[in-house]
Design a protein around this nucleic acid. Structure first.
Length: 282
DNA sequence: CTTACATCCTGATTGC
DNA sequence: TGCAATCAGGATGTAA
């Protein structure tokens, strides 16, 4: 399930490996995603070079340049929970990806291609103009980036005020803070020592401060290791991320808490599986 | 405005 | 062992 760290590490790899390359041709092999890929996709990206790669929340943005437009095209990708983007050449071994679920291919001028694959089709591949990226319906209501200064204790305390929902739901709400998904929500609350199902309005100022303070290093450490692979996430070369070994609670139901030795519990919060240690988290 | 919950999808896992 | 049922979950839409 690609969350912010997975997308950010993908972005970094792309920024140094495909910026400057030209898309010589493109193809949509299966347009069925959360919303259908536009029929004009291939013609709108072909003969454009890749000018930059950016990220907003869990969205990857590939900025194009056709050498003449003032406001060139941008490709916006979201990976749902099973999407991936891999770079393939003659030697690519598939790394567990089922090519049946390839949706979009971008042929580059070095005889490699970028392939968007998404078995469960919760993902999204959109085209827009660069100037309109932030105002697309998908991006316009996103909250602050968790790694930015805008995500701070004053802000989180303000949005938590009066909210009955569980604190975990609040930090997974993309309109509150953008990019934290189910895995990192459990992890950050473990680090902060806050039980996930606590009502947001009743989380103390100190606890809010810990949540904010723990979010940043958690995400940065995961980015450093190319993210988490739980089930089937792959990085651009088809390799699993390496943060999974460092997860303290996610997916560890019944195992010993790495801090205190008590059993990790699994509960459902907001219809999502949620893991925590009842001894370490109050 | 807020909250709760169904919905989309298919591979992996669980249960009998 | 084999097959059917269930689970996983990001974002959205609808209802209360």
């Amino acid at each position: 399930m690609p969350e912010l760290p997975e997308i950010e590490s993908l972005r970094r790899i792309l920024a140094r490996s495909v910026v400057g390359r030209t898309i010589v041709s493109a193809r949509v092999t299966d347009r069925r995603l959360r919303q259908p890929v536009t029929t004009r996709f291939a013609s709108r990206v072909s003969s454009h070079s890749i000018a930059g790669v950016s990220r907003r929340a869990k969205y990857l943005i590939i900025e194009l340049d056709d050498g003449k437009s003032e406001d060139p095209t941008a490709i916006i990708m979201h990976f749902g929970m099973s999407g991936s983007l891999t770079r393939r050449d003659g030697k690519f071994d598939g790394s567990g990806l089922d090519e049946n679920h390839d949706h979009v291919e971008l042929d580059l001028d070095d005889d490699t291609k970028l392939v968007y694959n998404d078995p469960r089709r919760f993902g999204l591949v959109l085209l827009t103009h660069l100037s309109e990226v932030d105002s697309t319906p998908e991006l316009k209501d996103l909250g602050p980036e968790p790694l930015s200064e805008d995500f701070n204790a004053d802000y989180l305390a303000k949005v938590a005020r009066g909210r009955k929902t569980a604190i975990k739901n609040l930090i997974m709400d993309q309109g509150v803070v953008a990019g934290i998904g189910n895995i990192y929500a459990s992890e950050v609350l473990f680090r902060a020592g806050v039980q996930p199902n606590r009502r947001a309005s009743l989380v103390s100022r100190e606890e809010i401060e810990r949540i904010v303070a723990e979010t940043k290093p958690l995400l940065l450490e995961s980015i450093k290791r190319h993210g988490t692979t739980f089930r089937n996430y792959r990085d651009i070369s088809g390799r699993p991320g390496r943060y999974g070994k460092l997860l303290m609670v996610y997916g560890r139901e019944g195992e010993k808490c790495l801090k205190c030795g008590n059993k990790i519990r699994a509960i459902t919060v907001g219809q999502r599986s949620t893991f925590y240690c009842a001894h370490c988290q109050k």
